[in-house]
């Protein structure tokens, strides 16, 4: 069966009240089921506004946004949309509601009015997927930053969503927390969950199947990561990750053949002296 896109944004524009120019304008974007889209942009490029649009938290002031075919401007559909598209924000402390880990994971399903046994099954699964099963009775306050963000992810997963939107969700984590969080995402994407990852860290988009660049509210580029690395990265003012800098210098010096991947391991393997 041909599946429609998870997200379909059509000519969307959004202006905040009192703002002189729209935060998002002329955006056309379609995301298919199972994709991992990295949405890149510098601060103020409109990428967070786009994320909130995809969760029906903001309704386009012009154009339209459909989530699995449901129009986000229809308030009747908001609950169904939010069940299918879960958001994880930047600061874990701003999204944890309850003092006990498992109670926080249960918050979403509780809002859906599900029976207790169903909630318990969902909580168990979400905690398992995020590796927090052993901490279920712990105080949410006592977790580390990385664990807190995985708790927020578990809370999102308990909604059993089709897609996850991550709004700079790793930017406040240390390298260890970031790695464990990204590992979770990789696992979830392998299970078929669509991921829209908003970030400005180049080294985090290695797993994306597609890269979209937002600039002053518009989609400035949309395409495959390989091509992005080769041609576009520096053009949008993003920092070139050191791996890529290495790759370029090695290739220019004739130390590695063209087509080598920008990872330390691959570079060493391909090295010819």
């Amino acid at each position: 069966m041909e599946q429609g896109p998870i997200f379909s944004i059509q000519g969307a524009e959004f202006s905040y009240k009192g703002a002189s120019s729209p935060a998002v304008k002329n955006v056309d974007l379609s995301v298919a089921s199972g994709e991992w889209v990295a949405l890149l942009g510098i601060n103020g490029s409109g990428k967070s506004t786009l994320a909130k649009m995809m969760n029906a938290l903001l309704i386009p002031t012009r154009g339209a946004c459909f989530v699995m075919g449901m129009d986000t401007s229809d308030p009747e559909l908001a609950a169904a949309i939010r069940q299918n598209v879960a958001l994880v924000f930047q600061n874990p402390d701003d999204q944890i509601v309850a003092s006990i880990v498992e109670e926080d994971v249960a918050f979403g399903p509780e809002n859906l009015g599900l029976p207790s046994e169903t909630i318990r099954a969902r909580v168990d699964r979400a905690l398992r997927l995020t590796g927090l099963s052993e901490m279920r009775r712990r105080g949410s306050y006592s977790l580390s930053g990385g664990q807190k963000q995985r708790l927020a992810l578990a809370g999102a997963l308990a909604m059993e969503p089709e897609a996850l939107i991550l709004d700079e969700s790793t930017s406040m984590l240390d390298p260890e927390g970031r790695a464990s969080f990204l590992n979770c995402l990789r696992e979830l994407n392998a299970r078929g969950i669509t991921i829209v990852q908003i970030t400005h860290r180049m080294e985090e988009v290695a797993h994306a199947s597609r890269i979209v660049v937002a600039r002053s509210g518009e989609v400035a580029w949309d395409g495959s990561p390989d091509f992005f690395w080769e041609e576009k990265c520096a053009g949008f003012g993003f920092d070139i990750p050191q791996e890529l800098e290495l790759l370029r210098s090695l290739r220019d010096g004739g130390f590695v053949p063209a087509g080598t991947k920008p990872a330390v391991h691959d570079l060493l393997e391909a090295l010819c002296l």
Partner: peptide, 30 residues
Amino acid sequence: PPSVRFAQGLREKGVRVPLASRVSGIIEAL
């Protein structure tokens, strides 16, 4: 950082290179 990990790998291949070099330093050593 990648440059240090790469330099470590180079040492194992017998290339003498300071571990804390920048990319330009690595290319020079190569």
